[in-house]
Structure formats: structure tokens, C-alpha cells
Nucleic acid binder design. Structure first.
Lengths: 149, 149
DNA sequence: TCCTTTATTGATAATGATTCTCATTATTAT
DNA sequence: ATAATAATGAGAATCATTATCAATAAAGGA
């Protein structure tokens, strides 16, 4: 008896809403941050104890495909997932040492303008159909500045 | 007898310039693009046939640490390496289907201005020491637009 | 409600990229 | 040359992710 919340999105496309999927969406919609598949697996077990890790990966893959979830790769060898809420568009500040990720949404107006220009030029020049972009900053967070040297 | 080209950078820091490392730098400086460790391994074998893949990874890691090489993660589960030449600062246009990566350097002046502003704000707000950024666009390249649906 | 169809699941094996271990080799400073 | 030790190659080990497959459970219709 999965919750009714997400059902609509699925049935349209021939997908089934199931307990495991509902639990994963629950975790994603409640937990903040950029969760790894393992983070999600760990949390989801509390809601749906028998779930397998493969199911988590499969569900995440599906959610990303239909746009319910965004997938990121900040280095470090594992992907991170974020619920694609209607909230503000945002980007990331990533610590190269500990992997911490902070969201930011400063200067979005100016960014949008520039992005549009670049996007228009690149689309035309390289015949790309661009659907997203990332403006991320890398460096050392407060703690890691002390640790490293 | 490794070439003299890169020696300086190493000795200063207590590292040794060796045949394998020189060969890897040779490949990186000549081959264009965003090579995977395996791409590099494949090429380097032509110059230094006995080299092992572990050496490639170790050398790349070192080069990244001392700033000779840049490491990127565009998703797809493997890192990509690029010689950090003195050339123009640039960013990437990535095909989400086939993984192709195209460099671009349009609107860099305007970008630089915006980047500086955001960087200043973020550094102060989150006590980060920012040292780099990425403005990458994702979408479908010409070929993949036809293939996918 | 009970069937039928077929998408989904969990367990586990398999894969692919990267890292680690360790005995051997090669560089560097002396 | 030689000693001290960084670097190497081979292969094992690890980690994240994907594939396989028989068993299970949704969805729609009778």
C-alpha cells in the first residue's frame, strides 16, 4: 500500500509504484543534502527493512530518468542524488578534502543571463541539445583548511 | 634517462622523475582531450611498454596533487585527466548519452567577472578557500539526439 | 474478489575502476 | 660507487555499480 503522493507520475508512464520506491522517495524528500546510494540504502532500511541495495540503484536510476531526482558527480568515485524539488535552482561548493557539499544560490539572476548566452552559442555551434548545467566551486572547507598542512 | 623537460618541478618537492612518469606526461601533453586512466595506459604502453596500470594511477594522482594535471568527473564512473597547460581557461560541454566532452571558452570575460563575485561571497559566507570552479553544460550531442528516441 | 500479465524485487554473482601490498628495481645525494 | 629510499610491476583487494534470475507483487480486467 504505497502512499498516493507520487503515484500519478508513474502510472502515466507504465511504471508501478511500490513499497520500496515509495520509501526511497520518502527518504529523498525528507533528508536534505546530496545523498549517496549507500546513504539512501541506510535510511530506507528504517522504513522498509527488507530492501536490497540493487533495488535502491534501480529506483534511483528510474527517478533520474523521469526527472524526479537529480544525479551529481563531484568526484570521489560515487554518485550523489538529490530530490528534484521545485525549490530554487542552485549549485554547489565542494570540499576537495572531505567531500562536504554546500548548496548556494547567490547571483542567480546574473548567472541565468550569462548561462543563456553561453547555452545559445554552444547549442548552435556544436549542435547540442543542452538541458542542464553546473556551476560548482571547489576548495577547502573551514575544517580541512586547518588539517591539510 | 628521462627527458629534462619536467624534471625541475619534481626535484624541488622531493619527487623523482622516472621513465614511466615522463612517458605519461608525454602522452598527456601531446594527446588532446579528457583522457581516462585507461586511455593513458593504452597510449603510454607505446612509449614504455612494461608499465603497469597502477603506476599510471599513482603518477596521475601525483601530477594532480602538484598541479601539473587536472582531474575531472563528468559522471560515467571514471575520472578524466587533462594536462594543465598554460592555455586558456575553459569549460565543458558533455553529452549525457555517449560521454563526449567538448571544450569551450566563450564569454570568458563575463564569466570571470561573475565568478569572482560569487567566489568572494561564498568564501566569506562559508569560510571556504576556493581554488577552482567548473561551469559545465550537459545535454545530447548531434549524433545522440538522433539515436535516443 | 480472483486471474493474468508482466514489472519489480532481493540475493548474489559479475563487472569495472581504482587502490593497496610487497618484494624488487631505479634515482638521488653522498 | 654506495647507501637510503622513492618508485615500480604484478596481482590481490576494495568499492561502487550493474546484471542475472527465480520468486513476488502491482495493475487492469473478468
Amino acid at each position: 500500500m504505497p502512499g498516493p503522493r507520487w503515484r500519478g507520475n508513474f502510472k502515466d508512464r507504465g511504471h508501478r509504484m511500490t513499497g520500496p520506491r515509495d520509501a526511497i522517495l520518502d527518504v529523498l524528500s525528507k533528508k536534505q543534502g546530496h545523498l549517496t546510494a549507500d546513504d539512501i540504502f541506510f535510511e530506507v532500511r528504517k522504513l522498509y527493512s527488507g530492501i536490497g541495495i540493487a533495488t535502491v540503484y534501480r529506483a534511483l536510476d528510474l527517478f533520474v530518468r523521469i526527472g524526479l531526482v537529480n544525479k551529481f558527480d563531484f568526484g570521489g568515485g560515487r554518485s550523489r542524488y538529490e530530490f528534484a524539488s521545485k525549490e530554487e535552482h542552485h549549485h554547489h561548493l565542494v570540499c576537495k578534502n572531505c567531500g562536504r557539499v554546500i548548496d548556494y544560490d547567490s547571483f542567480l539572476d546574473e548567472e541565468t543571463e550569462l548561462i543563456k548566452k553561453i547555452e545559445a552559442e554552444l547549442s548552435k555551434k556544436h549542435y547540442f541539445k543542452i538541458d542542464s548545467h553546473q556551476l560548482d566551486f571547489y576548495g577547502l572547507c573551514e575544517n580541512c583548511q586547518k588539517e591539510v598542512e
